[in-house]
Amino acid sequence: MENTLQAVPQNWYLVLSTLLFCIGIMGVLFRRNAIIILMCIELMLNSVNLLLVSFSAYSGNSDGQVFVFFIMVVAAAEVAVGLALMMSIYRNAASTDINVLNKLKW
């Protein structure tokens, strides 16, 4: 099998990760369930990871892959805390609808 780096232009990876990022943004604006909003944030983080890996592959330097490592660490910590928050919110409000949580709204 020939090399992917020669067969696929790097711009295509740029467009793919931009599209994934925008789908994540649309999900955050589109849904009202807080858990799905968290999942869309994961989608956006992953599009950035894909972009970093593609730049690292096309420049032949593995620094970008180490950055992706740290993004994964932060994402895992974020999800753990976020889901714990969601559990305690559900216990108090009996719902994960973000419109219930509008006390801080101006």
Partner: peptide, 11 residues
């Protein structure tokens, strides 16, 4: 799968 295509097997 994209990562494997981009030579990032461990990742």
């Amino acid at each position: 799968g994209h990562y494997v295509l981009l030579n990032a097997q461990f990742l």
